[in-house]
């Protein structure tokens, strides 16, 4: 069965409320093996001008961005092609953020491995005041059998 990804271009999820927790930041830093005290020591982070421990640059991948209605990526045959982040303000523990995702673009190509579909998704992270704090773009490549 061919999945018609193109039909979902422009569609977005409803924003999901995410609370940034200290423990989640520490577990993430631990998985990376990163001992930066900004992630571990709240007093140190405060002394550097942050309200609490700081999220590492790729931490926003842990957020729940909701789902685009009726759109589901297959679990198999997906390759993470590229990933970008644009930062507007640091994310720290205690932040309450609203996260959503949108399918920006679908491109199809016939490759060595058969049909390849390039899906570009954009994730937006806003704070309670509605200010954009961070945006991500993710390209996933789906190789159809």
């Amino acid at each position: 069965m061919t999945i018609d990804f193109a039909a979902f271009v422009g569609q977005a999820s409803s924003p999901i409320r995410n609370e940034v927790e200290k423990g989640a930041i520490r577990r993430f830093a631990q998985a990376l093996g990163d001992t930066n005290p900004l992630y571990w020591n709240e007093d140190y982070a405060r002394s550097m001008g942050y309200k609490s421990v700081v999220a590492p640059p790729t931490f926003s991948r842990t957020f729940d961005y909701g789902t685009i209605a009726d759109f589901a990526l297959p679990q198999e045959g997906l390759i993470h092609g590229d990933q970008s982040f644009t930062y507007y303000a640091p994310i720290v523990a205690g932040d309450v953020l609203y996260c959503s995702t949108q399918l920006l673009q679908v491109k199809e190509r016939k490759g060595r491995l058969g049909r390849m579909v390039f899906l570009v998704l954009e994730q937006s992270v806003k704070d309670e005041q509605g200010n954009l704090r961070l945006q991500e773009q993710t390209t996933v490549i789906y190789t159809a059998p």
Binding site: P37, L38, P56, P57, T58, D82, Q83, S84, T86, Y87
Partner: peptide, 29 residues
């Protein structure tokens, strides 16, 4: 892939120090 990107993120945060601010960061896997 994001684990490896996280390692590169550490290179950047180690480089810029605690008061550095990341503005953008992108990789290709």
């Amino acid at each position: 892939g994001m684990l490896t990107m996280g390692f590169v993120g550490q290179l950047l945060t180690d480089t810029m120090g605690p008061q550095g601010k990341m503005e953008s960061f992108s990789v290709r896997f």
